[in-house]
Structures are given as C-alpha cells and as structure tokens.
C-alpha cells in the first residue's frame, strides 16, 4: 500500500531544468582523454577523463574501453555521496565501456571546490539557483552526453547505475536502455518526509541545519523539490530496476511505491535479501540481460 504522498512539483520545474540544459549547452565539453597505463589491462584500456560542465567547472571520470572491435554496450556509474569513487570494476570493464564520474567537489574534481562530507548536501540549499546539486546534476548529464558520443559505444545498449543522480540523468537524457537505482542511497526522494524518519547521515545534514535554523524549512523544501526523483521519473524511458528493502524502511516497497508508479519506463522491483553477494549477482544479471552481455556472478562455488 502506498504511503501518503509526497512533495509538490514546483510550477517552474521544467523551466528550471531547461535553464540548466541551456547553460550546459553553452559550454563545450572540451574532453581531455588521457591514457592511463597503470589501470590498463590486456582486455581494456583505461583513461583519465576531464570534461567541462556548467560554472564552468572541470569534472573527472574514470573511462574504460574494452579492447577489440566495438561498438560495445556501455555503463554510466554516477557518483556516490562521498569524496571518493572507485575506478570501474574488472567485471564491468570486460563487458562494457564504463564511465565512472567524479562530480564537482569530489576528489579528482576538487579544484577549486573541495566538498565537505558532511556538508555537501546543504551547500547553498536555500536557493535553488545556487544549490550545489544544480551543478552536480549538470555534471552527470555532461558525462552521459560524452559517453553517448563515443564511437566505441553501442547507443542502443547504454545502462546507468546510481542513486537519485542516475534517475535525474536518465530523465534529462533519455539515452539509456536500463537504469538500476541504488534505492538504499536515495538522497532527494521525499526528502522532507524522509528526514523525519532518520538520524543517519547524509540526510541528518538536513536535520542538523533545520534544528539550528527552523525558519529556513520552507526555502529548503522548495529547493529540494526540484531534485525529487518523483518529479523526474515520468521522463525516464529506460527499463528500471528498483531494489526494495524491508517493509517500513526508507527503501521499503511501500515507501518506493510512488516512485515506481511515476517512472516512465518499465519498472521491476527486487526484494533485497541483505546478502550482499546474492543481491549483487541478481542486479548484475538484470543489467547484463538488458544490455546483452554475459553474467559475471561474484558468489563463488566452494569445492
């Protein structure tokens, strides 16, 4: 059963994001794709990638391209909440062109802005036009555009994985065949409701701010409403995998129900087992099926 619903979509939602698109279009990506011998293997070449996003701001990506004759299916990994993202995993590098992005403020994209953790989630949050996540979404969209432009990429087989950033990127650029949402890491989904149900960081950053400045709640609520995946979901065209946690949890099935209903693409839910190996292999298989590659399970057989 769906829970009460959620935050209102701002009346100028489309105009807000159109302005971001327009601003991004004014800056050429100016890619610098430098071969990285340390991370290259016999089966995949590795590159340090730098792109320009709005600001203008220079962002970073780990790019891996399989050896051999493409085009290859591709995978965009949007940044997690934290200062560091790992380079692409060996299992993915064997099957996909993989781009793992570092948004502004994260390591390797931390000049001139080095984000604080905790702190990023509330950076500029009282003004939608100054909020740091306006730029971060643009960073992810820029990465999607770049991946889509690569001649090595099969444009009909591009997948994306990540938290809200992946949903918003898939909504702004409907180039993806498959979207895996890391539901346990959602930041902006029904955020003003979610914050009342948790004291865990990073959402606790909002509680910290509003405990000190309760009068700022309307402004904060307005800003984050532009980022609520619920309002982006109808534009998603990809097939979507929504892993669902325990009933009653912030990634539980009833909590996710409005999002599942709103998504424009065909949506499948998966009840997580909390066995990390089992869950990984199920999700890996889902993405592999949608992008037409072999499965690479990590749960090994014990002889």
């Amino acid at each position: 059963m769906a829970e009460d619903a959620p935050a209102t979509r701002p009346p100028d939602f489309e105009a807000y994001w159109t302005r971001v698109d327009d601003e991004l279009a004014r800056y050429p990506a100016a890619p610098a794709q430098d071969y990285n011998p340390l991370r290259s293997t016999a089966f995949a070449a590795s590159f340090d990638l730098r792109l320009t996003s709005i600001g203008p701001y220079r962002i970073f990506g780990f790019l891996s391209v399989p050896e051999g004759s493409g085009p290859f299916p591709a995978l965009l990994v949007t940044p997690r909440y934290g200062s560091v993202n790992n380079p692409p995993h060996d299992d993915d590098r064997r099957r996909y062109v993989v781009l793992t992005l570092m948004h502004r403020g994260q390591r390797l994209a931390d000049r001139p802005f080095a984000a604080a953790f905790p702190g990023l989630l509330t950076e500029g949050i009282e003004d939608p036009n100054a909020y740091v996540y306006r730029g971060i979404i643009a960073d992810c969209v820029r990465g999607a555009e770049f991946l889509h432009s690569l001649p090595e990429v099969d444009r009909d087989r591009i997948g994306i994985t990540g938290d809200d950033l992946a949903i918003m990127t898939a909504a702004r650029r409907p180039i993806f065949a498959a979207l895996h949402v890391q539901t346990a890491s959602l930041l902006f989904y029904r955020l003003m409701e979610a914050r009342a149900r948790t004291s865990s960081y990073p959402i606790e950053e909002i509680n910290d701010l509003l405990r000190a400045h309760p009068e700022r709640e309307p402004a904060v609520a307005r800003t984050v409403s532009y980022l609520d995946p619920l309002h982006h979901a109808p534009r998603v065209r990809a097939s979507v995998l929504l892993p669902a946690g325990d009933p009653g949890a912030l990634d539980g099935p009833e909590w996710l129900h409005p999002l599942a209903d709103a998504l424009g693409g065909q949506t499948e839910t998966y009840g997580v087992t909390h066995e990390g190996g089992t869950d990984h292999d199920w999700i890996d298989a889902w993405m592999a099926r949608h992008l037409g590659v072999d499965l690479r399970p990590r749960v090994w057989r014990i002889d």
Partner: peptide
Amino acid sequence: AYPRCAHDAGVYW
C-alpha cells in the same frame, strides 16, 4: 561468517 554475504559481511544480522 555469513554465507552469500559480500563486503557487507552480514552486517544486517
């Protein structure tokens, strides 16, 4: 030791 658990190391339990 938790079978089928990965780097989560069975922290749920």
